[in-house]
Amino acid sequence: MIWQFDILLLTLVVVCGFVSLWIKDLMGAVIVFGAYSFLMCLVWTGMGAVDVAFTEAAVGAGVSTIFFIATVFHTSRTIRYNKWDLSTKFFSSIICILMGFFLMVAIGDFPAWGDALSPVNNNVAKYYLENSMEETKVPNVVTSVLADYRAFDTMFETGVVFVASLVIFTLLLQSDGRKKLMKSAFQKVSFLNVSESLIIRKACGLMVPFMQLFALYVVVHGHYSPGGGFQGGVILGASLILLSMAYDIKKVFARFHMKFMIKSLAVGVLIFAGIGLICLILGGNFLDYSALSKLFPSMGSIKSRYNAMLWVEVGVALTVMSGMFAIYTSLSSNGKFEEGL
């Protein structure tokens, strides 16, 4: 961690957040908020949290800003002038100041920032750092804890993405749109006849394969470098988002249809949970990957953990990819799945 960067960046972050709440033009606010997540990514890299930074880079820069822009696109951009509502402002400032006071009081009680001897850095985390290499043979401790020691959390985290996409898809899709969507399954759409600018089309067309290749690298190389299923999945989803911005949603659906998307959403989580279930059937506890060595005796229990983690990451990536794309298509086309942003 580098304290000089940290102080400068955090000051910028606070200013940026404040301004994005302050300005009256929603589009501007959303774009400033994009800068907020860029800076947050740098803050986390500065503190050595590379996986979190990668996730923030993928989510903040790639996806959540686009969600905001899509919402502003389909609603209104202007903020209506409100009368100065004294009681609400007074009430909420009292609450905020009270909360701030409470939190500030407790700060004096914390171990200093960056103290290597604090309880957080010693109790459980120390065990992971010292034993993960022996028990799983995965150098990236974040991946091994994410996909093995606390795999149950990660399974439900993937479940959250599934639930969110299902909720958004169900609620935005109108009943007439639903019938049209089912009819249009896998029909042939010409990729030549599009209205978008040539530059965007060509540039995005060139970018997309490289992005997908890079995403696959991130997924499978998560054991040795920052990254893993979630980050790779978001980048894969972002490549599809890019494609559907360069052409339109219908043309992407010709290759990757809605039906398929909903299925792959569920299949991703099912791969994860299914591996856990196989372990249970083979006589271990749920998600105890070492039980898989009964199925493949040539792998020891450590090797089977290593491999099972890889497959789990693939499942996560599948769900996250289709989840991000499903959320984008629903939000950007307001549930019509035709033109998009």
Partner: peptide
């Protein structure tokens, strides 16, 4: 965060 530490990749 820890002083004088590197990222958690062994």
């Amino acid at each position: 965060a820890k002083n004088n530490s590197t990222i958690p990749i062994i």
